[in-house]
Design a protein around this nucleic acid. Structure first.
Lengths: 130, 130
DNA sequence: TCTTGACCTCGAGCCGACTCGAAGTGGCAC
DNA sequence: GTGCCACTTCGAGTCGGCTCGAGGTCAAGA
């Protein structure tokens, strides 16, 4: 039994607008139409689960689209993930480093004992080395 | 000696456009004009250093503006930072947690041995609990 | 006087990922 | 046949933080 867009939305937790948007940017294949309305196969729910998985890992929609395009073209998921992961890892590591730096800086700001902005600025110039 | 916008840009590493934009959103006070052109006092460089400091800590322009508005109104930096830092800390901690989760997930994806998207989706549903 | 260069304003565009609203259509129940 | 709901399309708006371009102005130097 095929699914209407509302049903897919309910099952995946994404809005109908989002699903239509994903289709418009090539992330979801255009499904069959019955009376002008989209009819999805149940497997689209798996595809959306993979999209969610990839997005959780920090991939952009464009990157997920490339991954899925490869799989659609016959590649196995494993060989599709590998280069994407290799490309993404340094980005995520940079994000982690940056987030930790932000956290550290918050601690310093909380202990800020400057009595003027100029003093804060001087501290800033002394303490920031990136 | 006052500074032209180009000089401020050169000293702070921000473009003239950015400085004008910051002024338009209330982050920098409107400086005096001489012949229609902005003339900055040297202290603006300190102010921009504080802005950079706050942005490094993850604050938005609006948050930095609120901070500086308070200081301009006579508050000491210390008492202005405190509530902002308290508000920001959980956000940054959430960012750190999320970034680590992304990193962990990348490791799992790299070891992905699924032979189909449906299998990946099943893994995803099993492994993701947020 | 003419040119150059630094500056000015204003509006629009950009990025990603949606989100919303208006106006129209399909099909089912009563 | 009419009311209703789920769906359709398309275009525009949102968020933050710039960035760019067109066209105009000002002052200094050759």
């Amino acid at each position: 039994m095929d699914l209407a867009i509302g049903e897919v939305a309910a099952r995946t937790g994404h809005s109908q607008s989002t699903l239509r948007y994903w289709e418009s940017v090539g992330l979801l294949p255009a499904p069959e139409r019955v009376g002008g309305k989209r009819r999805y196969r149940p497997s689209v729910v798996d595809r959306i689960a993979v999209i969610d998985l990839a997005r959780h890992a920090g991939f952009s929609l464009a990157e997920v689209r490339d991954l899925l395009d490869g799989v659609d073209a016959g590649a196995d998921p494993q060989s599709q993930w590998a280069p994407l992961v290799a490309r993404k890892r340094p980005e995520v590591e940079a994000l982690i480093a940056r987030a930790h730096a932000m956290h550290h800086l918050l601690g310093e700001l909380e202990r800020c004992a400057c009595d003027s902005l100029a003093a804060c600025a001087a501290e800033a110039r002394a303490g920031l080395s990136d």
